[in-house]
Design a protein around this nucleic acid. Sequence first.
DNA 1: GTAGGGTTAG
Length: 645
Amino acid sequence: MGARNVVSWTSLLTGYAQNGLNVETLKLFLRMLVEGIKPNPFTFSAVIGALTDEGMVEAGIQVHTMVIKNGFGVATFASNSLINMYFKSGMIRDARAVFDSMTDRNAVSWNSMVAGLSKCGEMDNAFKIFSVMSDEVRNVVSWTAMISGYLQNGMAEQAVNLFCQMSKEGIKPNDFTYSTILTAQPGVSPFEMHAQAIKRNYVKSPSVGTALLDAYVKRGNVDEASKVFQRIEEKDIVAWSAMICGYAQTGDTEGAVRIFVQMAKEGIKPNEYTFSGIINACAAPTAGVEQGKQLHAWSIKSRFNNALCVSSALLTMYSKRGDIESAFEVFKRQRERDLVSWNSIISGYAQHGYGRKALEVFEEMQRQNLEMDGVTFIGVISACTHTGLANEGQRYFDIMVKDHHIEPRMEHYSCMVDLYGRAGMLVKAMEIIKEMPFPASANVWRTLLAASCIHRNLEMGKLAADKLISLQPQNPASYVLLTNMYASVGNWKERAKVRKLMEEKKVKKVAGYSWIEVKNKTYTFLAGDASHPRSNQIYAKLEELSCQLKGAGYQPDTSYVFQDVDEEHKEAILSQHSERLAIAFGLIGTPPGTPLQIVKNLRVCGDCHTVIKLISILEGRDIVVRDSNRFHHFKGGLCSCGDYW
DNA sequence: GTAGGGTTAG
């Protein structure tokens, strides 16, 4: 065995450090000290790096003292590692002191300062360093670090400017630069960056490809994103996860599942982000409920279920898929929670009509003195709205402004209009609109119009509709609400006028659909639909139900039929609403007692609401209907919305 | 020394 000197120790030690074997690195360092070998600056550099990765700052500071004692206080390599360590621990002044004491700075020293200051939010100071750098040291890394800093601090415009300037000065962007600048959406065009990436041969790179596909997704172009994904040569876990999330974001559950399965086939192990993405995909209204549960089980088996991003995804998935109990179970068991977890469960309870429970969760947040934001209060106020607690809602709005100093946004005013509007206090709702510090959005007017329809206030409805139509002349929902309002009071003349206006403006009504999942398959129904293979049995079931309903004293409320036809025909129209077809199919397609889940793209009508309540008793079934607005849990003749929706 | 996946309302 040859003589071992500091160089042989250090090369082994550096080898460990470069392969992320931090513990081995530190053990070897201790052995060196025990054996009386004096470390050199390279040894220190590797050791400090390992300590930084492990978050062992205290030990790092001790090593810093050793560095100075050994006379390497100004050595470039050791100092660079120290700068990095101090920045990672947020000790900006110490990092700066090391930098200032150096006599021989290289590009890494300068770039570490730029990157460190940027990450700590000190963009002005980062830019000062960046601008005094000489041409020899200011390289592509410096530019990329600055650009990244601006983006991380929400200064996208400066980032884009710097990117342009960089090219002008003849500095060629590298793969890091492209992956960074592509996150500036919608500040840069993915098409343009794509062209540059092709020219410079970066499209096969996983990081550039991933950033590019994500940029296309953010522009709503999943097809292009998918093409980019296919071209990535060695797809890593981040690329796979990004593609899955891409499909999830566009509501394409099947696309997401396809990629997830393909990934599993290729033997790639999912990580927490992959699970979070695929579970989010299963939160889409038409996704299979069973699929989500299976993924929950899989995530537990893979031990990723406690990661915050996974538990958050599970929480929203269960809530959106109508299973608020399981959502709360996930919330209860969460190892760590953030603001989003709390906001999710509050809004979940609100949407399901469990306003009191939403408020209980909020009270708990208050007791624990947790941070809240505007979204928290949107949940809280809408909990009051769906429970009919107008005064409480106003109180929470005031708390938000006075105690939490949260500036109300359009969404909050929209909630307030909804709060008063649904409670029938239309004048108060109008006052909110008048007192808002900015002009009301289309959404606000739509909310007022919907409330006017419920409470049959023609005058207010007409006013809201005029505003709404002037803001969104091509949106069919505006006209449909108005025609429904006229129809509900039997004013066929006005209704015909609106229909004519729609024709003139070439606005088409959106058809009502309902979905139901039976034996892991999703079935779609249109009103009066006869396309289902078991159509005859479905209508027979409806007929049977109709007799039982009449026997139970049910009277159809034909004011919900918005066509001008005779009464008998109206009853027939009501009995063929898409949700009833879906329920009838669910009843004949599943064993007695099985709960049913229906999703509808429009709001459920008042007559269907009454009928579903009765069906829940007659057939002894729990029925969950998610309409375009909220969840209705029908059980034993009652609905969780308390007939208030 | 610089980079790329996620979550909240109506």
